Simulated scan of single mutants.
Amino acid sequence: MLQTILWSIGIAIVVIILAVLAIHVITQYEMGVVFRLGKVRTPKPPGLLLIIPFIDRLQKVSLRIVTMPIQSQGIITRDNVSVDISAVAYFRIVDAVKSVVAIENVYAAIDQIAQTTLRNLVGRHTLDEILAETEVINTGIRQILDVTTIAWGVDVTQVELRDIQLPDSMKRAMARQAEAEREKRAKIIAAEGESLAAAALGAASDTMMAHPLALQLRNLQTLVELGVEKNTTLVFPAPFMSTINELGSFLERENAASRAAAGPQA
Rank of each mutant, 00 (worst) to 15 (best):
I23P: 01
S169I: 06
V40E: 12
E135I: 03
I9V: 15
L37N: 15
R259P: 00
I130N: 00
Q3A: 12
I110Y: 02
N120T: 04
A191K: 05
G202T: 12
G38T: 05
F35G: 00
V106K: 01
L2M: 09
M208R: 10
T149Q: 05
P264F: 03
I188E: 11
G47H: 04
N138T: 02
Q165V: 15
V34T: 09
L226T: 11
T139W: 03
L201D: 10
N255C: 09
L220W: 03
A214H: 10
T243K: 15
I144F: 12
H24T: 06
V20K: 15
I23G: 08
K44S: 12
V94P: 06
K184G: 04
K98H: 00
S62Q: 07
Q177I: 00
E194Q: 09
T126P: 02
T27R: 09
F35K: 15
L50N: 08
V40F: 12
A180L: 07
L215D: 11
F236G: 00
F91L: 10
I150S: 13
A261I: 14
I11F: 09
P43A: 02
M31D: 05
E30A: 10
A180T: 02
T117A: 14
R64L: 15
W152V: 04
M1I: 15
F54H: 04
L49E: 02
G263A: 14
I110G: 03
N255M: 08
A200L: 09
V61L: 04
A178P: 00
A102W: 04
A197C: 00
V61W: 05
